[in-house]
Amino acid sequence: MIRRVLSHTFFYIILLAMAAFYLLPIYLMLLTSVKPFNQVDLKTMWALPINGLHIENFIAGYKQLAPNINNSLMMVIPEALLSSLLGSLNGYLLAKWKFRGSNLVFTLILFGMFIPYQSILIPLVKFMQAIKLYGDIPGLILVHIIYGIPITTLIFRNYYAGIETEILEAGKIDGAGLMGLYRYIMLPLSAPSFAVVIIWQFTQAWNEFLFAVILTNQSHWPVTVALNNLAGSQLVQWNVLMAATLLAALPTLLVYLFLGRYFLRGLMAGALKG
């Protein structure tokens, strides 16, 4: 019994220490972002703010990033919705209507998820310029949807593979065809999977940097590019920068806080069968 108490105390000490390590950067962000500029000093970096909290840093940070947050939202929302629809259709077909070579097709699609995008960047830029979608948000949406096909297809396919084929057989006897079965049986069952994919694509596109920095021009920068630029400029006060960083991370943090369960499932799907 005593051994058990001792070992549990020991475990808790390690867990608390690790939790401190994970929370430290967020703590610093929060702390700095509510200090007035005259208290943002290297030496008192870890001291608590004196004379109350300064929320105006968030207003200043928001002013810096507002157009970019708007750009990100305009990109991420249609992107997440459309790519989940596409992934759902692909996943259904590849899980329940296998044809000769469908596993090969699936594997070939899946490979697209792992490639370093630097290996397709030059053709992509030239192609987007040729079809006049370079520099703006619609082009970025298209690119995210296309390179999102592998992961969205994977998540839906794994989900649909877990649904009993007997349900489909019953529907077939009632005279439903391939699309009828999808519309009346599969889609109504897909809500959890849609949640996983929409959340996953939302987070991915929100946090993505490479496509964003290469494919958009300055007035259409999403928030990651703008934040990186802000951090490199040296002209911005630290407290405002930290507030801005927090704002830029807020949407995905909120999604994680409230919908973490679905977020985790998307994460695990990325490891194929884990």
Partner: peptide
């Protein structure tokens, strides 16, 4: 609770994380 704490950094972009850690690792 612990699981949630250990997982949440995954939801933050590498850019935001780099900015904060750049400051921590001054």
């Amino acid at each position: 609770l612990f699981r949630g704490i250990f997982l949440f950094p995954m939801s933050i972009s590498f850019i935001a994380s780099g900015v904060v850690w750049g400051w921590l690792m001054n």
